Simulated assay, not measured.
Amino acid sequence: MPSGSSVSGASLDLSRARFEVVYHLACPGTEVETRARDICIEQTVEFPESAIPNPEIREQIVGRILAIEALDAGRFEARIAYPVEAAGSELTQFVNLLFGNISLKPGVRLVRFEVPDALADLYPGPRFGRDGLRTLVGVTDRPLLCTAIKPMGLGPHELADLAHRLALGGIHLIKDDHGLADQVFCPFDERVALCSEAVSRANRETGGNALYLPNVTAPAGEIGRRAHFAKEAGAGGLLFCPGLAGLDAVRALAADDRLDLPILSHPAFQGGHCIHPDSGVSHGALFGQLNRMAGADATIFPNWGGRFSFTREACLDLVEGTVRPMGSIRPIFPVPAGGMRLDRVAEMCDFYGPDVILLIGGDLHANGRDLIDNCRQFSNLSQQA
């Protein structure tokens, strides 16, 4: 081809269906239109608009500004629509289209997105969701209870003993601490086998339906092996950290019919994505909507008033993301955590309502009373609230 020649390309014939994404922009009012237009280009063609060879690309592929509204001094909300075909059929590309290159620029925050049926149908989402998880543990009308086996440094037999007592005390979800992986002092296979058996034994003793959820976050080639080992050992669910190993890894676990286990998402490594109000991703989009699209059934996050910095408003936004209409994708449980105490159970129940999983860890051990009795107190407080 002679130098300097161009090819306009084959004619595009897309559906013209688009989905909407909401961004918040921190910039002077004189720049907001330019910034919004930059998102439209950067998130799609990433190419000088004047040099686009085919006008159909400009018309059908490039993002489209739907509205820009002022929020307060120096902050604006922009609604931008993208063609559904640009997202392909892969979660990785969908996330890239939402907030790929533009995440590298200051003053841009992904706030929420609307998922039309054309996209939602590509993602089954949570296998269980709120209703399915309630069915598994046999609790229909009140908060579920969760805790973690810890601290790091205990061996498999010690952690299994803890898991057994926690299940005897009435905890519904007993998860690995997210720091438990495959360490020399607590090998994964041994821990999972012993803890699964301990919780199953407690269920036989009480008639309960407690679930043990081992942490299967691992190097890419090891995730599937650990998850299937957990299933075969009798685990009742999985803990996974999408910030460490990827949202699409969650999707693969949720889609695996041979596993058929609920997934509890942990926020490790994701804090930097959300804590600055003028950049990153909103709490509702990150911990709510994206977890649901990936297939998590419940999402752990730091509750307001704990040892982390989430605000009441951020927590409410997060809860909204767990239930926001997204086609046929099921709502999931919010799981407020992070230094929560028994004396805050009534407050949390009042704030979140009954559709919540309450996660209390260290405080079940801290006051020196019998661990089983402390768990029963936790259960009683949640039912009285």
Rank of each mutant, 00 (worst) to 15 (best):
F308D: 01
V323M: 06
D343F: 04
R312N: 01
V281Y: 07
R341P: 01
E347V: 05
L316Q: 14
A346Q: 12
F310D: 06
L286C: 12
V281T: 15
G280M: 13
I332P: 06
A294F: 05
P331I: 09
G338W: 02
F301Y: 15
L290W: 13
F308A: 03
M293E: 02
L286K: 01
A294V: 14
C315L: 07
P336S: 08
L286H: 06
I300C: 07
V323C: 14
Q289I: 10
T299A: 14
V335K: 03
T299L: 09
G284S: 03
M326D: 05
L342F: 03
L286F: 03
F310V: 07
W304H: 14
G305A: 08
I300D: 00
G305R: 01
F301I: 02
G288M: 13
G339P: 01
I300M: 14
T299K: 04
R312P: 00
M293P: 00
V281K: 04
G306A: 09
F287W: 10
R330N: 03
L316W: 11
F310G: 01
T322M: 15
E313G: 02
C315P: 14
R341G: 01
I332A: 13
V323R: 12
N303W: 00
D317K: 10
F333L: 07
T299M: 08
A294C: 11
D297A: 07
D278L: 08
V323A: 15
